[in-house]
Amino acid sequence: MDQNLKIELGKQGVFVTTIQELYNWGRRSSVWPMQFGLACCAIEMIATTMARYDLARFGAEVFRPSPRQADLMIVSGTVTKKMAPQVVRLYNQMAEPRYVIAMGACAISGGPFKQGYNVLKGIDRYIPVDVHIPGCPPRPEALLQAFIALQKKIDCQPLTGAERPRFLDAGAQGEFPVPVPGGHDLEPTSNRGVWPVPITMNRGE
């Protein structure tokens, strides 16, 4: 609908909306994160929820200790190869719609521990990440900005059509394979469906 007409009607005291806007407003205003922290970024995540930064202003103060009730997974910290299967399994156990924020250099790429034999080089190798936050660790303001970016992303999602999100597509993938520890690395080393292997890495990783 025409934005100008909507604003004009609003001035007259008539509130006009669409099902899509209402639906997305409801979803973005009550994104419940899952309560789990992996490393130092978790400390910043805790600070974000506290009174000084107050994530509650955006409707996300309810950290749930169970993936059944959570909408948002904040991967806050280094994902070791020992921990990665658990993180992917928890993501699988979350109910749709679900979102992921990869917080900090480690979660998005392995960060300063990238060369470590035991560190996963980014959680986006296994699960689809909605927002990446750089920083080591990112300040609470950065997490807030990532959260606002996620809300904007939710706001723009259409309910029908080819552009609709995964959870509204009955045929779309719902389960992401949980990697298992192999002899040398996690197997598989990445989920090709969510993380296309860069060309430079094709030669034996």
């Binding site: 169970s66 749709e96 009955a170 389960e175």
Partner: peptide, 19 residues
């Protein structure tokens, strides 16, 4: 209206990410 995507992992017993 809910978009269920059940799978064996999701339906399994919740044990903090472990099997």
């Amino acid at each position: 209206f809910a978009p269920p995507k059940p799978n064996p992992t999701k339906n399994s017993i919740y044990e903090c990410g472990l099997v």
